[in-house]
């Protein structure tokens, strides 16, 4: 299931604004890669280009290639909807569909893909909720609206929704930034679990989190205001946090940034 991601010479634009410049990196399958860097350096923008969400913004444009197991997702023959169906995404703010029940939220992706069999949907809902460590908390209220859960539960519901379609890759944009330390730990444990089956890319502002959950870390930086963000270096997490090649990386992770 898990697939490998290869990004090559990626340049991202919002209209005339050049947001990110010349990014090249690879993410092996069944691996967690963390994106770190100061605010506005383009982490979310790069992440959103990996499932073709970038182009949803008006005027947004992509140059370069992103390959999934060697297949360019930006090839002209590829349908962006199809790409998004095989790449799950979890957002910074939990965004369950408020008018849908918990069950319907989890299986929303499958329903979009045309699965109608109720028994199958129920099975997937249970499996995904167990996978997201939420099953025990919601199994008695599957028909209640998803918006009635706590923030941490909502985020795990969104993770369940993302893994319900068994995607090749899971993208997470600061999934814990709105959560308390206990929910954060629960989600970090979950990421470590999910790594067995999925290729994961996570954006985080929390250095400890990057160090705890990721195998590989990519540091992005801004050279100046109005300049495009850049990938400074990407390496094994251990290496980045103990002995980075670039001075900027060392300054950033040791808190001497700016």
């Amino acid at each position: 299931m898990a697939k490998r991601i290869d990004v090559k010479d990626l340049n991202l634009f919002y209209g005339k604004f050049h947001a990110v410049q010349q990014v090249s990196l690879s993410v092996p399958p069944r691996n967690v890669t963390a994106f770190i860097g100061p605010s506005g350096c383009g982490k979310s923008t790069v992440l959103r280009s990996l499932n073709r969400m970038h182009e949803v913004a008006p005027g947004a444009r992509v140059e370069g290639t992103v390959q999934l197991d060697g297949e360019d997702i930006y090839a002209s023959t590829v349908d962006p909807v199809q790409v998004r169906r095989t790449i799950g995404m979890v957002f910074q703010r939990p965004n369950p569909f408020p008018t849908m029940s918990i069950r319907d939220n989890v299986v929303a992706g499958l329903k979009l893909a045309g699965v109608k069999n109720k028994k199958q949907l129920d099975e997937v809902a249970e499996r995904s909720l167990r996978g997201a460590n939420l099953w025990n908390e919601v199994k008695d209220r599957m028909d209640r609206p998803g918006g009635g859960l706590s923030g941490g539960q909502q985020q795990r519901l969104c993770i369940a929704r993302a893994i319900a379609v068994q995607p090749d890759v899971l993208l997470m944009d600061e999934p814990c930034s709105a959560l308390d330390p206990i929910s954060t730990l629960a989600i970090e444990d979950l990421i470590t679990e999910l790594k067995k089956d999925y290729t994961i890319v996570i954006v985080t502002h929390n250095m400890q989190q990057a160090a705890r959950v990721s195998d590989q870390t990519a540091f992005f930086n801004l050279l100046g205001v109005g300049q495009p963000g850049q990938l400074i270096e990407v390496d094994d997490t251990e290496k980045i946090f103990s002995n980075p090649t670039q001075k900027a990386t060392e300054d950033y992770i040791s808190g001497r940034f700016g």
Binding site: M53, R85, N95, A108, G109, L112, A113, R161, V165
Partner: peptide, 18 residues
């Protein structure tokens, strides 16, 4: 319609109509 919900649906692979 809240933007995050729309983005959530798009990220799940919903077409415009979906």
């Amino acid at each position: 319609t809240p933007g995050p919900h729309v983005e959530g649906a798009i990220a799940l692979g919903a077409t415009k109509w979906e």
